[in-house]
Design a protein around this nucleic acid. Structure first.
Length: 1039
RNA sequence: GGGCGAUUAGCUCAGUGGUAGAGCACUUCGUUGACAUCGAAGGGGUCACAAGUUCGAACCUUGUAUCGCCCA
């Protein structure tokens, strides 16, 4: 059956994919013939994800390595799976609920909502798996894993055989908790008011936006005044005035309500007279204006703004540090939605307490300060940006804004007026990477990984070279981040995720729960103190982590055992929340007071409602997918894994944390090599985005050009550290390459040059020897390139070989041999061509699996599918130096003839005679051995050996003989003269350079011998050419 | 402000001390028996700039300029 003219990718790809699946071609260990394993963990795409060009790029590279190793007989595993993606998935399902008119998340409640998420996952979670298959990814899909596998409610749809990831995550949390590597604390964290959760600092994007800087006056307490003096660099006074205020610049006026102090630099002479005094926050009800102290701290920049900074410890990271140093209370102003608080006591009451604190009459614990709501009644419940407007308005209308002269034009006349001083300037603002809303620094209770304690082994693993990061610049970035690592906030106020395995109970050992007499039992007076739930709510609590409630119960029992009767008899029960626990406990105690039956007393505990950061679980991807903590065969075979291929952007999010966590948990590296790549951009280097409209959809590309074209393009642009610019023009080019390969194979098939069994054929014809050598060379190049993760080198080498060597030369050379050669030559050429085409197909398979698998099936009866065919191992032993030299000479001669023909405007179809004289033995042999090829490709009819060139002969620049094209009548003397002079100019330059070098004794002395030899040989050759050209030019002059 | 990197042909980019390269684009020619998704021949570069190291620098060093990314 004759082959079609082109490869029909859209027809063949699904068929081949199905064939691979039927054959179980990608199962772990498929086609293994040696002991070494080769494992890649896919960077798990979000379960909400759809394939984008980044996935396509990233997974192409992984597939190339995997297929290459599988063909080489390694015990190969490419582990696929998806990430549960906490925020993204919860968002997606909430959207779906809203769109389909179902009850919202809040209405459903946690359990029912999670059921919806699992349903959604079962329905849509497999999308990206199908898309990766279209790309040809040879993952062991049977092992598809999921980072929430095994969690409560998991119906096991789409990840039927996944290891129980949940158990692994919980185990790691508990172990790290027990080792003190995870702790809980009230800290300033990045709060996302849209999702109402804390996020880690990595999930915050700082973006420069247009903002305002307002300048306000904070009046000194009691109308005090001071002399404010400004000086220039030389110490000359530029401004001196009496002031009864201190001027503050701020971009966030609404946070003034929570100010705890004003700070100035200790060296700032302008404010030295008033340090230690109190000043008034110029906002809020007049009768209860709060006073705050003026303190010194190194933080304020004397040259920026007024040099004085308001300190709002609960809403700014820098202020937080100042407040901690100066013992300034942290007053929280906002609720979880970023609106001004409306809870707690009245403003008047709160302000009174705060005043006492400022005056040193009272101190507050962090929780007590946090409980105070200092938002005035008229601003309570307002959104933070509304509150900002209101605050600015109030201050300005009261005349406490700093005023300046402003020039303006009125009817062409320049006038000036006094206006509030507001600078319009770009400011850096933090945004949530998912929600895109302004992040609010917020004081909340969260869980943290004490990253500093686990960073050491992770740093050492890279420093020692145990793990190699490519490109090397990645290592520098890695060190820089890890050396300055901050605590990692791992709790998220979401529902979709691994719920934190921590239970809380009230601490009954503290103040107020004492056994006054020390007699081991609580009397009625002592018991009475416990009865109030309100009292309990304010109290401290203790917490324990455990994989399940049973285990944690025992821990609480152990604690209770140390308490007086009857508390030591209490039964531990689980309740919903802290409030429920307070109620339940006081109720139970009241009951005990009545019936004195300690066996009925309960001790309620409640579980942490938060879930873990998604990256905490994906940080365990390598071991979690292999079945850890079970002692599985997979762990033994495939761990540590080999290479991680992922984007530079998740070096910190994921790569560094995987290294830290695998080191901390199993004390081993997760992989030995990390290959980092850049973001895939459009052809101009712009990020792809829906709003810009420059998004390339890889699936559309696959539809139009085939997966192989996209894959080859990906491989070709994968230069280490390079910017990745994808264009359809490039993809078109590589689609053309697939057509080229297809047609070379089609030519072979038409000439019955098929049926190679893989053994290297014996060759006698130089051209056949030559192409065998060229094939061997490219195999070595490809292997070396892939070994070094230089995918672009591998792709370019194959492209140049298939197109530039096989198609441009070998196929053309073969034509006279196949069509007009004797039987033996024809048979040999058929065998060699069959082998060469097969080798092209084999070597290209990792990059272009579909067309090659198709050709493999089309071109012969095969023992195995191509994906399982042995990768060749031949090398330079197949290179025949003499054949190489001869063919290069032949190619050179043909190119010279073609070049002269074109420049002399010889009609393309016209066959011309060639003259030659002074042929060396080698040249004669080379010519005679390949005459048929030369004649055909150079379109010459006969070679005439002459003693003198006829007039009007154009000389060819070839070594070993003087060739010429006798063009007599058609030669254009001027054109030929110009051609020769140009060649001579080029030669002169080269020869000059080489002579200069060889004439320099230092060069001959210091340069390596090979280099000197090579230069000499080169010079000799160039001089020979120069001689020919000069002679030709001389002859030309005689015409 | 700190860190990392880039600057090579019109464009996109390879090129780790020894004759400056590829693809695309461009010009001219071509219905040569695999392929017009093709073939042949061509034009086009002070390797950002400056100084240094070296027999020799696109490549190593230092500085300057411009651009990009990450972090504050």
């Amino acid at each position: 059956m004759a082959m079609e003219k082109t490869f029909n990718a859209s027809e063949a790809e699904p068929r081949i994919t199905a064939m691979w699946e039927r054959a179980g071609a990608f199962r772990a260990g498929a086609n293994r013939s040696r002991d070494e394993s080769f494992t890649i963990m896919i960077p798990p795409p979000n379960v909400t994800g759809a394939l984008h060009v980044g996935h396509a790029f990233n997974n192409t590279l992984q597939d190339i390595l995997i297929r290459w190793h599988r063909m080489r007989g390694f015990d190969t595993l490419w582990q696929p799976g998806q990430d549960h993606a906490g925020i993204a998935t919860q968002m997606q399902v909430e959207k779906m609920l809203a769109a389909s008119g179902q009850p919202s998340r809040g209405e459903l409640g946690r359990q029912k909502f999670l059921k919806k998420v699992w349903e959604w996952k079962g329905q849509y979670g497999g999308t990206i798996v199908e898309q990766l298959k279209r790309l040809g990814c040879s993952c062991d899909w049977n092992r598809n894993a999921f980072t929430m596998a095994g969690a409560e409610g998991d119906p096991r749809v789409g990840h039927e055989n996944s290891a129980n990831f949940h158990d692994a995550v919980i185990k790691v949390f508990v172990e790290m908790y027990d080792q003190g590597l995870i702790y809980r604390g009230k800290r300033l964290v990045n709060w996302d008011p849209h999702f109402e959760t804390a996020i880690s600092d990595l999930e915050v994007e700082n973006i420069e936006v247009a903002g305002h800087m307002w300048h306000f006056k904070y009046p000194l307490a009691g109308g005090a005044t001071y002399t404010y003096v400004e000086k220039d660099e030389d110490g000359n006074v530029t401004l001196e005035e009496e002031r009864d205020y201190i001027s503050i610049a701020t971009t966030r006026p609404e946070t003034m309500l929570g100010d705890g102090a004003v700070a100035v630099h200790p060296d700032d002479a302008r404010y030295a007279p008033i340090v230690g005094q109190l000043c008034e926050i110029p906002v809020g009800p007049k009768e209860h204006r709060r006073l705050i102290p003026i303190i010194t701290d190194e933080y304020p920049d004397m040259t920026f703004g007024s040099g004085a900074v308001k300190i709002t410890g609960a809403h700014d990271f820098n202020d937080y540090e100042v407040a901690k140093r100066g013992g300034i209370p942290l007053y929280r102003l906002m609720d979880t939605k970023g609106a001004m608080r409306s809870d707690g006591a009245s403003y008047d009451e709160a302000a009174t307490v705060a005043m006492d604190v400022s005056k040193g009459l009272q101190t507050l614990s962090i929780s007590e300060a946090d409980a105070l709501n200092l938002v005035p009644e008229d601003l309570r419940g307002l959104d933070r940006f509304e509150a900002r407007k209101a605050v600015v308005e109030q201050i300005t209308s009261e005349g406490l804004a700093v005023m300046v002269n402003e020039q303006y034009e009125d009817d062409g006349e320049l006038k000036s007026r006094i206006v509030p001083y507001v600078e319009n300037k770009p400011i850096m603002q933090p945004f949530g990477d998912r929600s895109k809303v302004v992040i609010e620094p917020m004081l909340t209770d969260q869980w943290f990984v004490d990253a500093e304690k686990v960073v050491g082994p992770a740093l050492e693993a890279v420093r020692s070279g145990e793990i190699k990061i490519m490109p090397e610049s990645g290592e520098k970035t890695y060190y820089h981040w890890l050396e300055n690592i901050e605590p990692w906030c791992i709790s998220r106020q979401l529902w979709w995720g691994h719920q934190i395995p921590v239970w809380y109970g009230f601490d009954l050992s503290g103040e107020g729960f004492k056994d006054d007499e020390g007699n081991g039992a609580l009397d009625l007076v002592e018991m009475g103190r416990l009865l109030s739930a309100q009292h309990l709510l304010k109290g401290d609590e203790r917490h324990h982590a455990a994989p399940d409630f049973e285990t944690v119960t025992q821990q609480f029992v152990d604690v209770l055992a140390g308490l007086p009767v009857p508390l030591n008899h209490a039964r531990v029960v689980e309740v919903e929340s802290r409030n429920a626990a307070a109620d339940a406990l006081s109720e139970s105690l009241a009951e005990y007071a009545a019936n004195q039956d300690p066996t009925k007393l309960i001790y309620p505990v409640w579980r942490d409602a938060d879930v873990l950061d998604t990256w905490f679980s994906s940080g365990l991807w390598p071991i979690g997918t292999l079945g850890w903590p079970e002692d599985t065969d997979e762990m033994k075979h495939y761990f540590p894994t080999d290479v991680l291929i992922t984007g530079f952007d998740i070096l910190f999010f994921w790569v560094a944390r995987m290294i830290m966590m695998q080191k901390a948990v199993v004390n081993d590296i997760p992989f030995h090599t990390v290959y980092l790549h850049q973001l895939v951009r459009d052809e101009k280097g712009k990020k792809m985005s829906k709003t810009t409209g420059n998004v390339i959809d890889p699936l559309e590309i696959v539809d139009e050009f085939g997966a192989d074209a996209l894959r080859f393009t990906n491989a070709q642009m994968a230069a280490l550290g390079g910017v990745l610019k994808l264009s359809t023009q490039k993809i078109t080019g590589y689609r053309n390459f697939t057509t080229k390969l297809w047609n070379a194979a089609r030519f072979a098939e038409m000439n019955e040059a098929v049926g190679s069994d893989g053994t290297v054929p014996e060759a006698t014809a130089t051209v056949n020897k030559w192409i065998i050598g060229e094939t061997a060379k490219v195999r070595e190049t490809v292997d070396a390139a892939l070994e070094a993760y230089r995918f672009n080198d591998a792709a370019n080498a194959l492209y140049a070989f298939v197109w530039g060597k096989v198609c441009d030369w070998y196929v053309e050379f073969s034509k006279p041999l196949l069509l007009d050669g004797d039987d033996a030559t024809k048979a040999e050429t058929q065998a060699v061509m069959a082998w060469v085409i097969d080798q092209c197909v084999v070597l290209l398979h990792p990059i272009m699996p579909f067309i090659t698998e198709e050709l493999w099936g089309t071109l012969g009866e095969r023992k195995k599918i191509l994906a399982h065919t042995d990768w060749p191992t031949y090398g330079s032993e197949l290179v025949d130096a003499a054949a190489d030299a001869e063919m290069n000479w032949v190619i050179g001669l043909i190119e010279e003839i073609r070049s002269v023909r074109a420049q002399m405007h010889v009609p393309a179809g016209l066959k011309v005679p060639v003259v030659v004289r002074n042929m060396s033995v080698e040249a004669k042999a080379a010519y005679e051995g390949n005459e048929a090829l030369i004649k055909k490709l150079a379109r010459m009819d006969a070679l005439h050996v002459v003693t003198d060139f006829p007039k009007g002969t154009a000389a060819l620049s070839v070594t070993g003989a003087e060739f010429g094209l006798p063009l007599a009548d058609i030669i254009d003397v001027d054109a030929e003269k110009a051609r020769l002079e140009k060649s001579l100019g080029k030669l002169a330059k080269e020869i000059g350079g080489m002579r200069g070098r060889l004439g320099n004794p230092k060069f001959v002395e210091s340069a390596p011998d090979e280099v000197v030899e090579e230069t000499r040989a080169n010079l000799a050759e160039r001089e020979e050419e120069e001689g020919l050209m000069k002679a030709a030019l001389k002859r030309l002059a005689e015409i």
